[in-house]
Nucleic acid binder design. Structure first.
Length: 419
RNA sequence: GGGGGAGUGUCCCGAGCGGCAAAGGGGGCGGACUGUAAAUCCGCUGGCUAUGCCUUCGUAGGUUCGAGUCCUACCUCCCCCA
């Protein structure tokens, strides 16, 4: 279990990526012997992946880095069905337009982690719409459907909750696992893809693909899943104070992304360094060992900067780190904080604090929320608590840099800039 | 097909004799303590042009001064019988 000969499995294991593998010895031997092609599927359910999906991307990254060929598979076909695994109700069906738009948007982050280039281990970006959308129903049933036992499909944990209580499982969704299995076989045939990876919730779907491969005459296929990641206190990865931690910069800026990692719980720092950065293992060990008490904050900054640098580039990561330093350690104002512009004339006339926090910057959801926060001492203008909900912000509140700093709590800041 | 039960604050779970903006949790947000951590403690957790107004308890009607609460129909789900 713990000693792998191949670079790839050895690396994945020591960094904590492995939850389950279908045939450890066999897969290890394969990786030690030849360049292996492996894939992970991404469903286009939103215009961006979030931090929860980062672990999958990192697995592909290591795959390529250890000399093998990664395939990032976009679910342009499977997205039309929707994966019911471990969901307690059906998702709303997406239109083809939405799916295509989501894929185009999701794709953008991959090139930061994978090299899409010619060559034996150049990464491939593939869309399963390519073969799924043109399937002929009757042919598909006869060629592929006959290999599936409904009895067995009903026994999977991934659909059990749906079957035993709550909501119904539509025939449409029930087909998802068949399509995903078919994808694996199709990729095996077209690209000699031998391994499918994914989150632990994908185990059943992946194993179905292996079985289908047996029946349809592919070489031996393999499954590898990563653990379902939660923080040390049990929260799911990828949620932050403002909602999901999106990877796309237009949905979550580098500064906010950096902040998410900066706020990692102490107990998670070592684990996250291994999973989400490419720092060498001995250096990670050194960092974690040296961090005594509050010294761990320095390590959290390294974590945040490394993770952000991979996604948004080194320069953006360092700008985010610097913005945070000015804001938190000097109590000052950094021009790199999120900024909202207002017309100088409006500011001259005066903008109500409630409007400034709610409508203009969206720091709070409504005027009512702003009032409550004022009562609780949560809103600040230029670092001074707001006590009067009728107060007006005017040009006099602009600081030397021509901005007004609005804060919700200690961590969320937005600058109001007059233009 | 027959019988029984259930759908509650658009994050979730859940109480609710006809006067309810609706108990209690969880989650979330803010405050205190700290280290931009965890744990703990405290406050808040429908909207608004706000001593008032508007919207909310599966959907649509009805009874009533007044309905989450009663009646009718419909939708969805669960359980038992066939």
């Amino acid at each position: 279990m713990s000693t792998f000969r191949s670079d790839f499995l050895h690396t994945l294991h020591e960094r904590g990526f492995i939850h389950q593998v279908s045939d450890e010895a066999g897969l290890d031997a394969l990786f030690a012997k030849e360049t292996v092609t492996a894939y992970i599927g991404f469903d286009p359910t939103a215009p961006s992946l979030h931090a929860g999906g980062l672990i999958q991307i990192m697995m592909l990254h290591w795959l390529q880095k250890t000399g093998h060929r990664p395939i990032s598979l976009m679910g342009g076909g499977t997205g039309m069905v929707g994966d019911p695994s471990f969901k307690d109700e059906a998702r709303q069906l997406m239109t083809v337009d939405t799916i295509e738009a989501n894929i185009a948007s999701i794709k953008r982050v991959f090139s930061n982690y994978l090299a899409y280039e010619e060559g034996p281990n150049g990464a491939l970006m593939i869309n399963n719409a390519e073969w799924l959308r043109s399937l002929n129903y009757l042919e598909f049933l006869r060629d592929v459907g006959r290999h599936f036992s409904v009895n067995r499909m009903l026994s999977f944990d991934s659909v059990k909750t749906r079957l035993e209580r709550e909501q119904s499982l539509s025939f449409l969704e029930f087909n998802y696992m068949i399509l995903q299995a078919y994808d694996f076989v199709e990729l095996a045939k077209r690209y000699d893809c031998r391994l499918q990876m994914g989150g632990s919730d994908q185990w059943g779907n992946i194993v179905n693909g292996i079985d289908l491969g047996h029946r349809m005459g592919t070489p031996q296929l393999y499954a590898l899943t990563s653990p379902l990641l939660t923080t040390a206190s049990g929260a799911k990865m990828g949620k932050s104070v403002n909602g999901a931690v999106w990877l796309n910069a237009d949905m979550l800026g580098p500064y906010a992304f950096w902040q998410y990692w900066r706020n990692t719980e102490d107990a998670d720092v070592g684990r996250f360094l291994k999973l989400y950065t490419t720092l060498p293992m001995d250096e990670i060990a050194r960092l974690v060992n040296e961090a005594q008490g509050s010294g761990i904050n320095e390590v959290k900054k390294i974590l945040a900067t490394e993770v952000t640098a991979m996604l948004h580039g080194r320069a953006a990561a360092e700008a985010a780190a610097e913005a945070a330093r000015k804001t938190f350690e000097e109590g000052g104002v950094s021009a790199d904080l999120p900024t909202v512009e207002v017309a100088a004339a409006e500011l001259e006339a005066g903008i109500g604090v409630l409007a400034a926090f709610a409508e203009r910057t969206g720091l709070v959801a409504s005027n009512g929320e702003a009032r409550r926060q004022i009562k609780g001492g949560g809103l600040k203008v230029n670092d001074a608590s707001v006590t009067d909900e009728k107060a007006l912000l005017t040009a006099r509140d602009l600081n030397a840099d021509g901005v007004i700093k609005l804060s919700l709590g200690k961590k969320k800041h937005v600058l109001l800039r007059a233009v």
